[in-house]
Nucleic acid binder design. Sequence first.
DNA 1: CGTCCTATTGAAATTCTTCAACACTCGTGG
DNA 2: CCACGAGTGTTGAAGAATTTCAATAGGACG
Lengths: 244, 244
Amino acid sequence: MDRRQDIHNSDIPIPCRACEARHGGICGALTAEELLELSKHTIKHALKPEQEVSTSRSSSQRYSNILKGVVKLSKATSDGRLQIVGLQFAPDFLGRPFGEQDELSAEAVTEVGVCTFPKSVLNQLMDKSPGLERRLYKQSLRELEEARSWMLTLGRKNAQEKVVSFLCLLATHADPELQDDSNKAAFEIPLKRSDIADFLGLTIETVSRQITKLRHAGLITLTDNRFVEIPDLAKLQDLAESGT
Amino acid sequence: MDRRQDIHNSDIPIPCRACEARHGGICGALTAEELLELSKHTIKHALKPEQEVSTSRSSSQRYSNILKGVVKLSKATSDGRLQIVGLQFAPDFLGRPFGEQDELSAEAVTEVGVCTFPKSVLNQLMDKSPGLERRLYKQSLRELEEARSWMLTLGRKNAQEKVVSFLCLLATHADPELQDDSNKAAFEIPLKRSDIADFLGLTIETVSRQITKLRHAGLITLTDNRFVEIPDLAKLQDLAESGT
DNA sequence: CGTCCTATTGAAATTCTTCAACACTCGTGG
DNA sequence: CCACGAGTGTTGAAGAATTTCAATAGGACG
């Protein structure tokens, strides 16, 4: 049972009652009172794929919580080459406390639901609630570790291993439609090929070829280019570090 | 003048008085009292190049502050390929609050001085001092941004641009022996070629060739393979994103 | 039915790595 | 004092991996 049952449900702001992210996200660190304060300023948005999330430098100075879907964070060189530097899932917090982000864009990969609120409101809440700051800090540490793991993938793995690493990442991260006990996994890849390429530092063609190879090797099964089945996840995970 | 002059110097613990990192590092967030508490448990170490810093999983469960020198954080694949995922300079904090780091090694690149202390002490101080946690949080956000910028370099830049990006990173980050007004820079590269390669996701040979090219193009001058002079930093910075 | 978008596949071109040889510096010890 | 070896860095040539360019196929939608 949830430990927060001592808070009466009637204390929870109406827009938050059915919220998918209320426990997992940063909201889980807030008291009913704080939640109410925050909820006065929140707006929920639905985003289509490719649509930019209003973050940092963009339009309104607002932070977001992801309620649903996948958001990609990416950076670009001045001549337009793109690198995805992070994938965020519900119930992740989105935004950069304390000053500006340099050149980071955040856009929806799938259909996305976000709950946004002004930076100023969170900043004030953060000063009052140590639990909130702690939770944000922990998320940034987690993201830092993910980024560093991915640096190993980008810098030192070959195309085969990169694609496999990507599939393994999804197999653990994405909604596990089949993740019971075993060694199997099945899920939908939320990204299209060009996004995968931008995440792996490869070209679309190379990604496509590697996926074909894995298919022929019987390591994965594909239906409609998005839905993957992995019969032996352990074998795939081995390939992620010593492939070819 | 320093705002902390209201703290009498006699309040500052003796080992901290002459500390190079006392203002810049996390210690700058502490009151005299907190600093005293911390200093009771600190040990200063001098490390030779290649020597591992006692962090996370390693030997003692201690955090560190870098007082001097450069530390590399790296990850490795199971078959031994290496990727440097971060460079830390004084007065950076070193360690992973809240649980273990997965497979991250930290070792001295140059001669390094660190000030270490038990995790438990910092954890307790962090609960008491919001300013301390704030400062740690900010450092992790900074590191996250650096990691993500570097992901763009690793994933989307060619060898030339990678080496140039590395030099530009040092030109701004490392001790600027010549960074007055202008467009020039001169500094010592603290890493050897194999470290540079591991940082850039390249081989030693490719790094060497690219440096030679830059030398022949008159974009840099080298003396003794470590000391670099950059006559036109702006031109170099342009190359970092659209080289060849 | 045509068009746009996405994905696949092939062949040629390019970049980077691998393998191999060599040069330089520095400390040690005969 | 010089020879030796280890550690570090450079350079060349051949090889491999990935990219680039180009053509094709399928699905969604108006």
